[in-house]
Design a protein around this nucleic acid. Sequence first.
DNA 1: TTGAAAGCGGTACCAG
DNA 2: CTGGTACCGCTTTCAA
Lengths: 329, 329
Amino acid sequence: MADVAAEAHVSVKTVSRVVNHEPGVRPDTAERVRAVIERLGFRRHDGARLMRQGRTFTIALVVEDLANPFYSQVGAAVEREARIRQHQLITASAEGSPSRERAVIEALVNRRVDGIVVVPADESASSDAVLEASHTPIVYMDRPVRGTPRDTILSDNHGGIRSAVEHLVAHGHRNIAFYGDDPAFWTARQRRDAFVATHEGLGLPGSPRVSMGPHSSGSVQETLVPWSRGPEPITAVITGNNRITLAVLLALREQRLPLSLVGFDDFELAALIDPPVTVVHQDPAAMGQKAAQQLFARLLGDESPAQTVVMPTRLIVRASGLRRAALNR
Amino acid sequence: MADVAAEAHVSVKTVSRVVNHEPGVRPDTAERVRAVIERLGFRRHDGARLMRQGRTFTIALVVEDLANPFYSQVGAAVEREARIRQHQLITASAEGSPSRERAVIEALVNRRVDGIVVVPADESASSDAVLEASHTPIVYMDRPVRGTPRDTILSDNHGGIRSAVEHLVAHGHRNIAFYGDDPAFWTARQRRDAFVATHEGLGLPGSPRVSMGPHSSGSVQETLVPWSRGPEPITAVITGNNRITLAVLLALREQRLPLSLVGFDDFELAALIDPPVTVVHQDPAAMGQKAAQQLFARLLGDESPAQTVVMPTRLIVRASGLRRAALNR
DNA sequence: TTGAAAGCGGTACCAG
DNA sequence: CTGGTACCGCTTTCAA
């Protein structure tokens, strides 16, 4: 900028005015400056600018794994909201490690990002002190965190599972098993608890048959086989997420068990499997959008108390929830 | 930092030394400084630091759509390489628009990112001037660009298609159709050309039956039905990408056509469809990793001529490539 | 309408 | 081992 100023025989301040389209520059002066800018290929150094202004026009997203379709859809939505507002997005993976997450967040705070959206690795709020001291706004997604109340965007796990159970019951199922993921995950526990509660609420027979992961096709079969034989054999299965749905589908195929199924999380090509898989759909794009919007509201000065938003799920009925007898007719 | 210096009765330079673990500070002085840092909750402002140092320790990834599984896997790989090297990653979507891509790249250059990986929207190299003037290293991915030679990471489209044709021929197919995506895409044209070349190279009968998109299940059926009836009916189909594979699968199901299939791009649950889908797998994670590695090599001063790397594809044989007669036995 | 000087928060360089 | 000072590239403030 100094170069441009010298070349155009004006002060840096005038160049600055031209670059930022500030008023109060004579048109011919402005034109002369622009010509020099063009000739020298000058580009404003946004780092310096933003440092002076105290904001970075950057937000960050911290997730477990960017390659996971759930997170990548969240990422796309957050990036879109950021772009609309002239902000840039830094994305970082914590790989499910709380310590790495903490390190990542500290690095982001050191960079003075304006705000952070994070899918927390655990509930420990290990970055609370840093965030508090730096006044960096944060929005948690998908899972809540202990400690200081913060804006949090969750999925309606309970409602989703309930709709799955009710759907199966409406189609005549009474004996339904639930396969969930590792109970270390908050969402896995939520969905399990929702299943048990709904099971009892509807007065289904016996005690709820629940198997928590981590699961593979093999580990699923260990309970799937006895449960579908013995007395009161199960006729349907509900799964706690994408990964478990896959394991159960493989297990059903391997054992040639004609059980009905409702999965949590929609997945690509669920409609092409035979029979097409009925799922509880959560909307990662909507969640990401909501999280980003909430973050920007804070950046714009919203000082209202932290709020938790529960995003609705939607049952996508295909065919796997019907009774197999009905399907074959 | 000035506050810390004042409080600890040392100069800012000494604080700087402590913060950066530079040698030449007496242990007790360092300890005193650290105590003040802790008490005041001081955190180094990386923006200021990086501005002085002239590097930002930031690289960027520009793609069409972060939610697309191909790009999100690339993104995860690039982020990982960046993180290993203490860099952060800015991700941006250009939504397939060359003008938006140009704007995004200019913004990134203004931020002085150290380098950029981009999946270009078209071949026009519209950002060439900016990149040239700013000396920002760039690596192109998946598609080449005209103009100044640049580092480029491509997938072996030709080899992939050839392996698909050869696989089908080995299983007795002679009449094979190709469904590709919109020929506006460089990769779509590459794969089409590879099909035609292989078709001729192997001396398959008649002229190659090719239908380019954009395709839906409906548009596929328009040619699929006549081609599988008339004289020399096709017995197999090759698809040019993920999206087309889906359209063809739906079309085959709708028309109850028992054709064999090899798809380009692997996809989630391809193994669970009946019959399991044989695919040409390209490795987005490996491509992203390679691109990032190439970029960092440039950042470390590699001045060798720009190179184009073609990453191998791999045929994942499941069952859909067999003749249906064989399958039913 | 224009410019000089201070300062954002650090680091580089050199002196003590 | 420690400190002073210039300076990175821009914006802010105030004066001309």
